[in-house]
Design a protein around this nucleic acid. Structure first.
Length: 606
RNA sequence: GGGGCGGUAGUUGAGUUGGUUACAACAUCGGCCUGUCACGCCGAAGGUCGCGGGUUCGAGUCCCGUCCGCCCCGCCA
């Protein structure tokens, strides 16, 4: 051990020293952040987790030390003992950018704990480096103050969560990561069992069934900050392993769990950002979200609402536009959006928007500039559409002179996807998001009344829209057999600024209802027993009514931190192909290792 | 599975119609400098143009393939 550390213990962190510490002898530890060598005066900003402190080496204090300081380089890890002095009194000036900017530490003793080779990326907030390089050199990347700020925020959020649930009587209980493999739903990561040849665990997609069984076991209120694993294709906001704030409670209905979660979110905002969010949050049905915004997680901070034109144009049998008529005849959807005249979109702007939607897979972008008397220009439909239909359409959309109408028609799912993406795109490119004031910066709302099932377009079978343990709405039980498509669920999502940050439901606690739901999804008796027999069994012993939710912690941190990538808020994230550029995972394993777990690889070698 | 963008000194970028020794900034190295804090000044070094193949007298530039990263659609009960 260095003799320096034996004699000296850190007295302060690098954000702490102030004018009142003048004359104190202090000991700081950290990294060389920047060097300014004036020959007779050598200045260094010393950095630790909390901030920067300027340290200075002077020949008149210690000539040898001053010579030695010339050797120091960026990112060396050092410790110093010195005296706090006033910068101005020393003939310098204050640095208003630093909280420690009025003082400096005149170094009496220096210890180099470790030198650094020249860092491949610079440890500075403002230097932009490719994400690939940052992930390769994650240790250096994580040294950047921005990153450390992120993880302090993440810690605050996790602590606020634990404090909140503790106060509300929730128990944190750990559930297994190695779980029973069940096909269907998200793809599982599989783990071979050495002790059981040919058999596999799955990594838990979520603790869903375990938390429900905790309710059946009488735990009453549970939460867990828990890692979950899904082997699906990745996105900026999707990682193969991610963290959920997982919650379940007995004897509650939607209102109860929603109120509790509103309290949690309120506390998280308060303790992490110092922002007060108002409760209760707005509630909006799934159907209304889709109609008005084309999304089940709409951003409600701005307008640009969609208008469904099927009824209006149906009255005119398509109004003379063949595309409209064929869409109506085929049971498709026609939607429009109005970009108000104030945004002054040119024909060229419209072309760019068309390129944007084509990039999403749209055939094109229907357009019309509304003129005086409701006439249309810059539109392929202008000469086709009848006057009556055009005026009715203008009126349905509330379009005024100078406005730009944007239209999509065809397959409903695609129309919604394209129009929703277009709405977000416009909000960003027209500066609507940037113009939001502080009081409208955060918008939270619940989406309710989801369908219980999703129909498979290929074979007409039904799958669970949320998960198969979600309760149908009161009075909808008969629809499980008569009309599954119209059966609504007691499910709810929490949306923050157009991002789904959580979702949950009231669960089924009646084994007969659970069996009917499985039937609606065409799950055979054998499958029921094989996959979920343990749950059906547990439901037989006095299962309490219960409900729950899970919030995506990573996504929440991402939004509160103002970034658009989960990789910015996970210390060691994976790339879009699921690799870890820092360690090189995944890698092949030794043949011996494979044999031990009774596995043979059929992958072709590169 | 599909679409799009990108890969050039340590880093971020420029590089025209295919044509001399591939350029700039920052970083690095050496020297000078007693009040800097994006320190300054002088000087130097630094390149498998992702990789492989092709076209050509000649390829960073054109063509084919491939790898990697990012964004999006599908997918994510």
């Amino acid at each position: 051990m260095s003799s320096f550390l034996e004699k000296n213990r850190r007295t302060h962190r690098c954000h702490e020293l102030r004018g009142e510490n003048l004359g104190d002898e202090v000991i700081l530890m950290g990294w060389v952040d920047s060097l300014r060598d004036h020959g007779g005066r050598r200045f260094i900003d010393l950095r630790d987790r909390e901030g920067l402190t300027q340290i200075v080496f002077k020949p008149e204090t210690d000539d040898k030390l001053h010579q030695l300081a010339h050797e120091l380089r960026n990112e060396w890890c050092i410790g110093v003992r010195g005296v706090v002095e006033d910068r101005v009194a020393n003939g310098g000036s204050e640095n208003p950018k630093l909280v420690t900017g009025t003082i400096e530490v005149n170094v009496l003793e220096l210890e180099v704990f470790n030198r650094s080779v020249v860092p491949p990326i610079q440890v500075e907030d403002q230097i932009e480096t490719s994400e690939e390089k940052r992930l390769q050199h994650r240790v250096l990347d994580l040294r950047r103050p921005k990153m450390q700020k992120t993880f302090k925020l993440r810690h605050r959020i996790a602590q606020a969560t634990r404090n909140f649930f503790d106060r509300e009587g929730f128990l944190e209980v750990e559930t297994p990561i190695l779980v029973k493999y069940t096909p269907g739903g998200a793809r599982n990561f599989v783990v071979p069992s050495r002790l059981n040849p040919g058999e596999f665990y799955a990594l838990a997609e979520s603790p869903q069934l375990y938390k429900q069984m905790l309710m059946m076991a009488g735990f009453d209120r549970y939460f867990q900050i828990v890692k979950c694993f899904r082997d699906e294709d990745l996105r900026g906001d999707r990682q193969p392993e991610f963290t959920q704030i997982d919650v379940e409670m007995s004897f509650g209905v939607e209102e109860d769990i929603q109120t509790i979660m509103e309290g949690l979110v309120q506390q998280i905002f308060r303790e992490s950002l110092g922002v007060e969010v108002a409760t209760p949050f707005k509630r909006m049905s799934y159907q209304e979200c889709m109609d008005r915004f084309g999304s089940d997680k709409p951003d409600l901070r701005y307008g640009l609402e969609h208008v469904t034109l099927n009824e209006t144009l149906g009255k005119f049998d398509g109004g003379g536009v063949p595309f409209f008529k064929s869409t109506l005849d085929e049971g498709g959807l026609i939607k429009a959006m109005v970009v108000p005249a104030q945004y002054k979109l040119s024909r060229a702007d419209g072309d760019k928007l068309e390129d944007f939607v084509k990039g999403l897979g749209a055939a094109g972008l229907g357009r019309a500039k509304v003129g005086a008397d409701g006439a249309w220009t810059q539109s392929p439909f202008a000469k086709l559409i009848s006057d009556d239909a055009r005026l009715a359409l203008n009126s349905a959309c509330g379009a005024q002179e100078g406005d730009l109408l944007l239209l999509q028609f065809g397959n409903a799912k695609k129309v919604h996807m394209v129009m929703s993406a277009l709405r977000q795109h416009l909000a960003n490119t027209l500066g609507i998001i940037d113009a939001l004031g502080d009081d409208t910066k955060w918008h939270l709302h619940w989406v309710t009344d989801f369908p219980l099932f999703e129909e498979n377009e290929e074979d007409g079978t039904f799958g669970a829209a949320h998960h198969p343990f979600t309760s149908p709405q009161v009075g909808h039980e008969d629809k499980l057999t008569s009309d599954p498509a119209s059966c609504l669920a007691r499910a709810y999502d929490l949306v923050l600024n157009g991002n789904e940050i959580g979702g949950g439901s009231v669960r089924i606690h009646d084994d007969k209802v659970q069996a009917k739901v499985f039937d609606a999804m065409s799950i055979s008796e054998d499958d029921k027993e094989a996959k979920f027999g343990f749950l059906l069994e547990a439901l037989k012993y006095g299962a309490p009514p219960h409900c729950g939710i899970a919030l995506g912690l990573d996504r929440l941190v991402m939004l509160l931190r103002g970034t658009t990538s989960l990789r910015d808020v996970i210390a060691y994230p994976k790339t879009q192909k699921g690799t870890d550029l820092l360690t090189g995972a995944p890698t092949p394993v030794d043949l011996k290792q494979l044999q031990e777990v009774h596995i043979a690889s059929i992958a072709k070698k590169n």
